[in-house]
Design a protein around this nucleic acid. Structure first.
Lengths: 175, 175
DNA sequence: CAAAATTTTCAATATAAACTGAAATTCAGA
DNA sequence: TCTGAATTTCAGTTTATATTGAAAATTTTG
């Protein structure tokens, strides 16, 4: 009974379903999953065939994975077609995703917060006061998140793991 | 020149645009933004009016915010209509979002990983070996993430802030 | 340089998700 | 229990996004 393929497919499907939550499309995530559990580099055609997706889709998704830095394209000796290998270390994948999300999600918020705060001198009254206060609180928070993501994006597994363990073990701090 | 309203609107629009990245719809995020910068509780009608959205949309979004724990519904004394107040502390909002994302995103992955690993005894050969290895690595990673999110979801601002600062200040650890 | 192989692009299409608005239901007060 | 106010639901519509597939562009080889 060949269950291996069944589980591989299931894994790919589930990983793909999670994709949108991590800031990638289902197709991008499915290809990523396929490459993670593949021993050898795969060509665009193999990927298209394996996941039943179009050439255009496979192409775009691979390009995105390469841009994110979690897949590399290579042309094996003596071949014409390009093949792709996926980063297998989940920690490295995580760091790449952090970098991407920081750039796409956190930096734009900081920009708008700074823009609003820069103009805050022009506002007057209680109404303005509490709006600005709220923005200041948000900025403290987003700044901290930004720095953390920056750090994670450029750290090694060991650093992050140690840090994670530190939090999990920590006691509740008094207010 | 009344620029305050302009900036408030811009803030709401930008916050809303980020919503999908945090696992909520644009409408949910816009209402959240509106409540964050509002001094007083708002009724469904005020929200509909303020953001130009339908009753159904406002209703569903508010329900979701309440479920996530970052908005509360109250009926002010002497009123008939329900009013909503948003959680203003970004750190508490962050904790709530963590709880939600852990539940919706991390736990399902753990479930599939465990399911695959439970069945792994039935697989044989090199192919199976490397698939299982990969799953084990993933599980180590996802488990760590799960614990971290659990902890964050139940921590105070002080704990998290200290922890964040610890990472930002930390030196690169040797491999 | 021409032909074949491969990659890239993009307009059209399909898919999925969110939103609307009106009808149904629930609720509170008389 | 009746009535008007408020909330909730949901089928239909809209909107946004992802995917297809074939044509165009590029690259490789003889």
């Amino acid at each position: 009974m060949e269950k291996l393929e069944f589980f591989k497919d299931e894994f790919i499907a589930e990983w793909g379903a999670l994709g949108p939550a991590w800031g990638m499309t289902r197709t991008v995530a499915r290809i990523h999953a396929l490459l993670m559990i593949s021993d050898k580099p795969l060509t665009t055609d193999e990927i298209m065939d394996s996941l039943s997706i179009s050439r255009g889709g496979a192409h775009g998704a691979l390009k995105e994975l390469v841009t994110m830095g979690i897949t590399k394209g290579t042309i094996p000796k003596g071949e014409r077609k390009e093949s792709y290998v996926g980063e297998k270390d989940p920690w490295k994948v995580f760091c790449s995703i952090m970098r991407e999300r920081k750039r796409r999600e956190v930096e734009p918020v900081l920009a708008i917060l700074n823009r609003c705060l820069a103009a805050s001198g022009e506002f007057h009254g209680d109404d303005a006061r509490s709006f600005i206060d709220q923005l200041v609180h948000l900025k403290e928070f987003v700044d901290a998140g930004d720095r953390v993501m920056e750090k994670i994006g450029t750290s090694e597994r060991g650093t992050i793991l140690k840090w994670m363990m530190a939090l999990v073990k920590s006691k509740r701090s008094p207010r």
